[in-house]
Design a protein around this nucleic acid. Structure first.
Lengths: 361, 361
DNA sequence: CTGAAAGCGCTTACAG
DNA sequence: CTGAAAGCGCTTACAG
């Protein structure tokens, strides 16, 4: 340490040392116009000398009812958040707005102990909450705080809070339509989690109906609309595999299982680029050429999607913008401005090299 | 909103409603063993009914002298942090430790207004500070807080605080030695910033001597040791181009300028993978084959380095581990345990496809 | 321009 | 097991 003082120096100490009232010292920091520049400088000088680092943030926060921090809540362990290449983009978007307004970002996730104390005890002025499953205790803890809160990504039980989401249904539909238009008649889906703590595997129709995560549910629906509009049977021509985690490994496993089905799918729709990259990896290892032997379509348009070989056909959503909008909505609430209207951001199919006609057979 | 109560419900309200002392209500939340389970349940029941969401974090923080948050300070605008593919890994490392101990992560950067108020007013128990240039006001503001603080990445003026860094000198040296061993005699360096708010460009020897950022200085030194050990002249055989930002675009520009020198370098050492990827892009656009026409070596071993075509030869450092160690050191301080010793993490050259012998000429 | 006083919402010895 | 009291460090009307 070395710098840690023996006892905390407070505003009061400065006031005493100078023989002025504490309110005057407070004013020196918060209302420069309320005292002479000379006195103000003497106060700062004394503060420096005594090692006073300015008003204590917690005491000030308590008094003012504002700390200057936005809570960004991740539905899982925080360390997992950074496994996903698009999570940083979303946070960047929030940061863009927060830094303008002078707010910091408090990242909150679940703890290994599975309690939700962090959300219950986080010193923040409001929350941005992303993609929770119904009944998640962490989510309940956040809502229980009754702070200004913005919901991101298709919540199923939105309690009247402002929200921003993306057109998951439309994006998924466009992805499936693209493959069907190319001639594919047998599709595999590498799905994100449907419910909390799912174990993964091939899903029955009944299990699919129980999807609790908003984006997952919406994307399944979008795929299905396209499939049925083309006269195909969702139950017979499509296999859905649920990945218990959004990782490369699970993407590989999904590909392995899906390609082991018979009849074999000629294309795989992945609900994230992360999963799609795993599918590409599996294909490369198996010597399956993409797109001639297998078509792959992702979701997100992560920066890496354009850089892989082959580059990835995917559904683009603007994660930075999603974060910005959420930040704007929350700041409007925090600053007492008029609440912003909910927003549905567009998605857009980006066709690259990983999709093509199915192999002739 | 909808959920915002008219007036804040406090612990006192619960106590009054039940006719017990406030301390009893407080105990219900903090010391379950201090009262009967029945009374405790009645208290929670009343809290639910009145819409009390538990003890106010700020008041509790003020009283206890602890908020449960670690400040992670980024030397620039926070939104830039997520431009770098390795920043999330570092944060992930800190998160891994913080979530174990029940701490949240408060991300703090500079604000567009260039003041350092956020660092001065952030409600945190301690700081992890990464890579500041000498005299940066944001850094001064953090140090001025006199909170437990851990320094990451080669600080030049370390005021006796615990720190973790990596062997930048050794890594850079290994990278340069690798190229020299392959036969390269003329090197270009795509450098990270040397000082705050630098404008970039080719650097004179004198300018190089003024490097203020620790890692930049250390890597320049490492490259130089290798160059001079091989009997080459640092001033004559090496061109250093400073990139004012760590982005793909600046990497492209660096390549453009460096390859415009005469004699032309046959290899480029980039101080980050991000810059190296920019160099690769420029080469691809110019039709310069890598590694046959140009060798490129990065720094970091970001996840994407293995995925590019050609894959990137680079210096590996473990960003997650760096974050973990910083987190461990800070937590040791916060929890009053014995301070951990400073750590220098190893770096290691990872040879991939982007480096080879120079073209014959 | 300056100062005395109240109070933000809680926790913690301490006494019973 | 329960309660009265002090105080964490500050800001904000308010009076002068």
């Amino acid at each position: 340490m070395g710098v840690k003082p023996d006892k905390k120096v407070t505003l009061k100490d400065i006031a005493q040392a100078l023989g002025v009232a504490t309110s005057t010292v407070s004013n020196a920091y918060n209302r420069p116009d309320q005292l002479s520049p000379e006195l103000r400088e003497r106060i700062f000088e004394t503060a420096r000398r005594l090692g006073y680092s300015g008003p204590d943030p917690m005491a000030r926060g308590l008094r003012r009812g504002r700390v200057g921090a936005i809570g960004v809540v991740y539905p899982d362990r925080l360390s997992y958040a950074f496994t996903d290449p698009v999570a940083p983009l979303f946070i960047q978007g929030i940061a863009l707005e927060a830094e303008q307004a002078g707010y910091g970002l408090l990242l909150v996730g679940s703890t290994p102990q599975e309690d939700s104390t962090l959300a219950a005890t986080a010193s923040v002025d409001g929350f941005v909450v992303q993609c929770f499953a119904d009944g998640d205790p962490l989510y309940q803890a956040v809502i229980g705080r009754r702070l200004p809160t913005v919901l991101v990504d298709n919540f199923s039980d939105t309690p009247g809070l402002p929200w921003v989401t993306v057109d998951d249904v439309g994006g998924a539909r466009a992805a499936a339509e693209h493959l069907i238009a190319l001639g594919h008649r047998r599709l595999g889906i590498a799905s994100l989690e449907l419910t909390r703590q799912s174990v993964g595997g091939i899903l029955t129709l009944e299990q699919q109906a129980g999807a609790s995560y908003g984006p997952t549910r919406a994307r399944l629906q979008g795929y299905r609309v396209a499939v049925e509009a083309a006269g195909l049977s969702w139950g017979r021509d499509v296999v859905v595999y649920e990945c218990p985690e959004n990782t490369l490994e699970e993407g590989r496993r999904a590909a392995e299982v899906l390609l082991g089905q018979s009849p074999r799918p000629t294309a795989i729709l992945a609900m994230s680029d992360q999963l799609a990259l795993g599918v590409l990896e599996h294909a490369a290892r198996q010597g399956t050429a993409v797109p001639t032997g297998l078509s792959v379509v992702g979701f997100d348009d992560a920066p890496i999607a354009a850089q892989t070989t082959p580059s990835l056909t995917t559904v683009r959503q603007d994660h930075v913008e999603k974060g910005r909008r959420a930040g704007q909505m929350l700041l409007a609430l925090l600053e007492g401005r008029e609440a912003l209207e909910p927003v549905i951001l567009p998605t857009r199919l980006v066709v690259r090299e990983s999709s093509g006609p199915p192999p002739r057979s």
